[in-house]
Amino acid sequence: MMKTRVCACQTKDVYLPERARVVASEPMTATERFLAFELESGRPLGHQPGQFVEVSVPGVGEAPISISSSPTRGAAFEMVVRKVGNVSRAMHELKPGDPVGIRGPFGTSFPVGGAMKGQDVLFVCGGIGLVPVRSAIQYVLDHRKDYGHATILFGTRTPAERLFVAEAAEWARAPRATYMETVDRGDGQWTGSVGVITTLLPKVTIQPAKTVAVICGPPIMYKFVILELRRMGLSDDRMYVSLERHMKCGVGKCGHCQINGLYVCQDGPVFRFADVAQIREAI
């Protein structure tokens, strides 16, 4: 006889978005826009640094977007969206007060309450890889005594593509924190470092036994950064990567975000590198 299933689905539709409103919308670069939202119910989103939500723009569709702010920064939650798809293009048109639908938060988070605690933290971010990692940077800086030295490395293709420029200046001034940035190519006025992100790593001294690295960037970046970190003595179980895939449903069903047997929407987006180092499709 078949068991009668008694389950939560009879009261809850996992695909049903909750209404939220835009509370801030500002251009950040030529292709990136900063957006902040609040749930209409007024309750905090309840996310952890590194998680994502599914954003619905009425009449356009739904897309997975990383949360860029730390839960320590109030009920509003922030995103930075690159204009690349239907939904992100529509999000670039959003004005304060506009309604959207939100599902989530989904996925795993940076181990701010676990492996990172009490350790030196090294953030390695390429381009919009800084966006999800910013939630963890803010969290670490908001709980300064719980962590050792915080090093933030940020690389972009050009100076104009840098994100959170004003905020990064604050990070550089924070106690026991280092902020370094580089660009692949300068623009005439640029006087800072030129070179890919890995050129910043030799400028950093780490204590491998008490350092945890957080890595996020374009697909091509991971293997070079990881190889360099290994050379610096950091073990795979001290590296955390946030991986991008199309997390369409967010609940481990639709199949789009699979990395071999893993679902990025459930098992990720944040993975301990040691856990995915042997997984062919991961990096």
């Binding site: 389950c7 689905c9 809850k12 996992v14 695909y15 481990g252």
Partner: peptide, 12 residues
């Protein structure tokens, strides 16, 4: 698969 972790109300 549709009830694992997150139950899919539409399927059920």
């Amino acid at each position: 698969v549709f009830s694992e972790k997150h139950c899919d109300a539409h399927y059920f």
